[in-house]
Design a binder for these strands. Structure first.
Lengths: 368, 368
DNA sequence: TTTGTTTGGAAGGTGTACTAACAAACATGG
DNA sequence: CCATGTTTGTTAGTACACCTTCCAAACAAA
């Protein structure tokens, strides 16, 4: 039944594609003239003019006036995305005990932030917190809100239904639909690790990318050919309960021994450090990093990824753990010294918020 | 620099898409009338008629005459792919000491087979064998040869350059170009595991798929969203030299201990069985299967694949090894009893030949 | 001032798929 | 046997998207 949809194609699809192509180019290269856009997109100036007129009419683009630089020929009129006419709302539900959110401009700049303590709320109570945080943020926006992006823990399918998110007590919750109904805005929902992946994809430009997120659990986001992998059950990246190594390991919440999460979720790491004493801190983190490397090595070989981005508490992840992961990966994969990069995210705690904004923007404008 | 190409789109692309859509539909559902095609593709009868006329003109389709079934209305004229006007040539270079090949019809039926003993030939000598086998097969074809598909061991990039294939002594060999020049036909080249993946994709219809190929080495082919994963260096699926387990393991040809290939390449397995004695055969295969499961578990979690297909010598792979792999996978991933399937390929030794034919057909007709 | 360049737009053409309408060829029911 | 309804495939006309070609305006440089 897995037959992928074979859809017919109309000339209008070409138009839609070229429309977003113009938007994307403008986003990538900044303010440009119609002639610039024609050169970048390899469309003719006529076609670009037509598309631009349409986009201007919809208010998605603005004319900035003539270009400063003095060149021969008729001076160009610069165009840009109407950054100042729209905003996005981004929600990060991945942290324990509180939800975070922000109002974000089209270019990713954060305009306003809000947090909401949720304590141990689960189920409908947690959902109510999401709705209220979203409502507050929409109220904070001083421009038209284009859409809402949400990063949540758990397994999320393509329709924005949270299949299961144990920490929040959600099962088969149609989060996207609920939020969209409550706030009367387009909503886009994805797993937090996959959202972090979006943020990293947009800032690194890599085609193949692996993002590892260490928090209450351990999750991953994987991009192949520039596109996030979903998987057959929308559960791609759920590596937290994969068993690591052949020597047992700590008991996991799922009831088995040696799960990745049992080795290196943030709470487990802190507990292990506390138990071993501060002088053993480095050793504990190294061991955890080594375990992560063991788990990730087959994935690196399988999808041939050269860049791995880590996200999680800086004090735990950024040092010995990351180094040990990198070393282990190089030892355990056929590395030809051609630069397997393991790096900390440059977005810090904002990965999910930024990624959620990107998700919403991509959903509404088609640009990544 | 991994920025994926942003291409403009023309109305003509829509046409090309719809053309292959018609071909694909015809391939999937068998002989159909224009009206049938219109219903399947959701294009209008007018458009379908136009596309069909074009394809008839090119000889890619044939009219079979009126449909037998007696229904009200004007009787339909059945159309079908011109199966009898074209053939494909498929080459399998993955076996030791000999190359295999076949002439294949568009529907996958093998028309003729040839083998060519190559002994220990490597480098240019091996290439010469490929050319000669290809030439013989083209000679055997009694229809127009649409193209040539080649499955080779080693790392192959998108341009058909064999980056490296140690067994054949090839480095940076532009195999596709050489063959195309020598035989004056379109040539398509891919890694043998990825070719096997194509065969499995077409027969299973799964969106996400993992094919493990055990032979001289151990390789994998991975499909995500129905598309084979290439990877940043075209090396996706090269899991042979990923280290497995945390307890050392046999010395590998690459100089390290515990590589997957050192555990379960076909020669290693046979040697291990010979060394342990026939009564230990099952135990050796079980252990090998367990190792494979350990290696594959993180991949299964990462890409959320539910179907794994094994290919290799039946006597080694089909029994205890496969079972142990399946068991280990279920133990080491968060399986919810919802059917993680590990199965032997149904194509037997013909996987690569059939896949190579599919590769050529896909390259020339755009259908999969 | 002259020349060449650059920009943005206008006019006209080609290609694609659509809707509407129709003739041909059949089954069926009175 | 004939009228009716159905299905097929085609013709004619429309809408749309992009193209090529041409042009005026606005500028720099000689």
């Amino acid at each position: 039944m897995g037959a992928r949809r074979r859809e017919k194609s109309l000339p209008g699809h070409a138009r839609a594609h070229n429309r977003t192509l113009v938007l994307q180019t403008l986003l990538d290269t900044g303010p440009s003239s119609r002639a610039d856009l024609a050169r970048s997109t390899r469309l003719t100036r006529v076609t670009v003019s037509d598309l631009v007129a349409e986009l201007l009419g919809e208010g998605l683009l603005v004319e900035l006036g003539p270009r400063d630089a003095t060149r021969p020929g008729k001076p160009a009129t610069l165009l840009d995305l109407a950054h100042d006419r729209f905003q996005l709302v981004a929600l990060d539900l991945s942290e324990p005990q509180r939800f975070r959110g922000a109002v974000v401009r089209l270019d990713g700049t954060v305009v306003a932030r809000l947090e909401r303590e949720i304590g141990e709320a689960t189920g409908d109570a947690a959902l109510e917190h999401v709705v209220e945080l979203g409502r507050s943020l929409v109220g904070r926006a001083d421009r038209t809100v284009l859409g809402i992006g949400v990063g949540t823990p758990g397994v999320v399918d393509a329709d924005g239904v949270v299949h299961q998110a144990p920490n929040l007590g959600w099962h088969e919750l149609p989060l996207r639909e609920r939020l969209a109904d409550a706030l009367a805005l387009p909503v886009h929902v994805a797993n937090d690790a996959n959202i972090a992946l979006l943020a990293e994809l947009s800032s690194s430009g890599a085609e193949t990318l692996l993002v590892v997120r260490i928090g209450l659990g351990v999750g991953a986001g994987i991009a192949v050919a520039g596109v996030p992998v979903r998987g057959d059950r929308s559960a791609a990246g759920e590596i937290g309960h994969v068993t690591i190594g052949t020597d047992g390991g700590p008991r996991c919440a799922c009831g088995r021994d040696g799960c990745l999460e049992a080795w290196l979720s943030a709470p487990r790491l802190r507990a292990a450090i506390a138990a071993a004493g501060p002088e053993q801190r480095e050793r504990v983190l190294e061991e955890a990093g080594r375990r992560l490397g063991i788990a990730v090595a087959p994935i690196v070989g399988a999808i041939d990824v050269r860049r791995i981005v880590m996200s999680g508490p800086e004090d735990l992840v950024a040092g010995a753990l990351l180094e040990a992961t990198a070393t282990t990966l190089r030892e355990r994969t056929l590395d030809e010294g051609d630069g397997l990069v393991v790096a900390m995210t440059e977005h810090g705690d904002d990965v999910v918020v930024r990624g959620a904004a990107l998700l919403a923007r991509a959903g509404e404008l088609g640009v990544s």
